[in-house]
Amino acid sequence: MNISESKQGNVTILKAEGKLDATSSPELDKRLSSLVESGTKQIALDLAGLDYVSSAGLRVFLSAAKRLKQAHGKLALANLSVQVQQIFDIAGFESILPVFKTVNEAVESCAI
């Protein structure tokens, strides 16, 4: 998996590409937890290039959302592929994680 980072105002955008599975998920988890630990409070995840997610990946999103909530921060997700969206639906993640069609919408929702 590839992870790249950029900033838009106060919002950190992480772009995750490839497969988010049992093997690769610790890398994204580490990246997200170190961002939160270093004081980042607004994170948008751009998942346009993410073509696979398993429960190990869902676990990463869930723990990031919990950590950010504790830190009074915000997490937003954008650009889910049809298949990743299906997994979110089955897991009931739409009701607990804010998901947007575009990165700009995700960034705006975090910035408020």
């Binding site: 429960s55 190990a56 869902l58 676990r59 869930l62 919990k66 909530k69 997994i87």
Partner: peptide
């Protein structure tokens, strides 16, 4: 979110 357990989703998927 606060009550969601981390894990247990794999078999469900």
């Amino acid at each position: 979110l606060a009550k969601r357990k981390i894990g247990g989703l794999g078999l469900h998927l």
